[in-house]
Every structure is written in structure tokens, then in C-alpha cells.
Amino acid sequence: MCFTYILYSESLDKFYIGHTCESLDERLRKHLSDHKGYTSKVKDWKIIYSEIFENKSDAYKKELEIKSWKSKTKIKKINRKFSWIEHSDFLNRNGLNSK
């Protein structure tokens, strides 16, 4: 099982779009750890959206589709549209739902 996901940083008011075949919990932990990369600038990233795929290729295609939108407005709409979805991989400490 793989995921396409969107992270949001309130302090930067920026989104990060990615995909992974790890659990979302583990992937977010890596984004919040000390590393060099786009998400290393701040430690307030939260998963605001994710979608499940059967394979990495499909998850990557969805990531590229979302990135091609180049629009905060459209990304915010997808978050509102699917905000009712709960994922067991979300972390309580990040203000997200957990089962």
C-alpha cells in the first residue's frame, strides 16, 4: 500500500506534496527530523490530506498531478473535499485524527 500526501506548514504557509510506501506516521517523522531538504526549515508540518494507492507508480502519478496544479486554492479545495477522511496512520500529536 502506498500513499500520496499533502503536508502543510502554518508558519511558512506552504504545502509539500509527496508519495511514500511507508506508513504516513513514519514518513512524517522523517520530514520532522533533522535533515537537509525542503521540509527541514520548520517543524510544524501536518498531514492535511492523503490518498491510498495499490502501488508506488500510481501514488507518484497522483503526486505529479497535484503538483501540476500549481495552485494553493485548488490544494485547499481538495483538503476541504476530503477532510472527513480519517487515516489510522495520522498522528495525534499533530492534531490529526487517529483510530
Rank of each mutant, 00 (worst) to 15 (best):
E63G: 08
K56H: 01
I75H: 00
H19I: 10
E22F: 12
I85C: 08
L64C: 11
N97V: 08
D89W: 11
K70F: 06
Y16C: 09
I47D: 04
S57C: 09
K81H: 01
H87R: 08
M1Y: 07
K56S: 05
D25C: 08
N55C: 10
L24I: 10
L28C: 02
D25N: 12
K61E: 08
Y38I: 13
K43Q: 06
S33E: 10
T73P: 02
S68N: 00
S71L: 01
E65N: 15
L12S: 02
I6A: 11
W69A: 13
S33G: 10
I47N: 05
S11Y: 08
S68A: 05
D58E: 15
C21H: 12
H87Q: 09
Y16Q: 03
F82D: 06
Y38G: 07
I85K: 04
E10Y: 09
G18I: 06
R27G: 04
F82H: 15
M1D: 06
E26V: 12
S9L: 09
L32C: 03
H31I: 05
E10P: 09
R93P: 00
G18T: 02
Y16D: 05
F3G: 12
S50P: 04
S9C: 11
I47L: 04
E10L: 01
T20F: 02
T4R: 13
W84V: 10
K74W: 01
Y60W: 13
S83R: 13
S88D: 11
S33P: 07
M1R: 06
R93N: 15
S57G: 08
I85Y: 04
I78M: 13
R80C: 04
L24M: 04
N79G: 12
